Amino acid sequence: MTQNRKSQCLDTIRQQILSLALPPGSDLDETKLGAEFGISRTPLREVLQKLAGEGYVDITQNKGAKVVSMDMAVMRSFFQTAPLVYANIARLACQNRSLPQVEALKTSQQHFKTATLNHDPAQAAMHNHQFHQIIGDMSQNCYLIPSLQRMLIDHTRLSQTFYRPASPAESALVRQACDQHDDMIAAIEDQQVETAVALTLQHWALSQDRMERFVRPDPLPVELTIPKETAHAI
């Protein structure tokens, strides 16, 4: 029974972090979590330690656990590293994929499409997470997979913005992302390495600008104008 509750607690906290129900940097109240899932302090600590090992949580001695942050340094590393990891994962996935994995990828894509058609940004982000996780597993690379898994935490949190389009043009980008997934599946299935890498980089570029908006400050609510008398001041 305790093991089932631990698994439920683990899965729920992961989902809440990825969906931003638990915001980046927020404290995790161990007393509240223990009461919510009906587990004692020791198994809860085991859950938090596992989440820390996976990159979801930071644990500081005498300060408890926090949801991993998305500060400027983290985001800088994310945007620098993501295209490198995704491109190399795609290359290895083409070379090492199995047919059952390809079928799993197609199933994940169907769920992703359904979520986008239903205008469900949280589910779209989660199924996109699963889609790229399967491609990571295809790579069979013990060094890249942990990097991908850590990156997907932030990618999934950031992509809540991408899957919540605010205009017809942004909706078109989401549809384009769906089409790119289909093309990526075909390239991986046919082991077309260079095509898969090119598509992966195009897919990254498609959503990069929208994801960057997540960490940009909103514009000021008023239009700033420069008085004529100071327009040419030095």
Rank of each mutant, 00 (worst) to 15 (best):
Q208L: 03
G34L: 12
S77Q: 15
I234S: 07
A87D: 09
R157D: 05
K106R: 14
D120P: 14
Q208D: 03
Q133K: 11
T116L: 00
V67G: 08
D183E: 14
R216S: 08
W204V: 00
Q15W: 11
K66N: 07
T12M: 10
L33K: 08
R213L: 13
M72K: 10
G136I: 03
G34D: 11
H127A: 00
R175N: 09
A90W: 01
T195E: 06
A124S: 12
G53V: 12
D137H: 05
T42M: 12
A87G: 14
R45D: 08
T156K: 04
P168D: 06
S159V: 04
M1P: 01
P43C: 06
A21G: 12
F162A: 02
M126Y: 03
K113E: 01
Q180I: 13
L10W: 10
S139F: 00
Q80A: 13
K228G: 13
K66P: 01
Q109Y: 08
L152S: 01
Y86P: 01
T225Y: 08
P168R: 01
I17D: 02
S207R: 00
S69K: 12
H111G: 06
L33D: 02
A21Q: 15
T161S: 12
A87V: 05
K63H: 15
K113Q: 01
N62K: 11
L220G: 03
H127L: 02
R210F: 06
L173G: 02
K32L: 14
L173I: 14
K228Y: 04
M151C: 10
G38N: 07
C178Q: 13
A198E: 04
T230D: 10
Q176H: 11
Q110A: 10
R213K: 08
T107D: 14
G25N: 08
K50L: 14
P219W: 15
F37T: 04
N4E: 15
E46F: 05
I226A: 06
A124W: 03
L20E: 04
P24R: 10
H111D: 10
A104Y: 08
Q123C: 09
K32N: 06
N128A: 06
R164E: 05
P217T: 15
I13M: 02
N141E: 03
K66Q: 15
H232P: 09
V85H: 06
P83Y: 03
P168Y: 03
Y143L: 09
L28G: 03
R216F: 09
L22W: 04
R76S: 13
I17E: 02
L105D: 02
P43G: 05
R213D: 04
E46C: 12
T225I: 13
H155T: 10
Q130W: 13
M184A: 02
N62Y: 15
E229A: 06
R210C: 09
E36N: 04
Q109L: 00
S207M: 04
I17V: 15
V57C: 05
H155E: 14
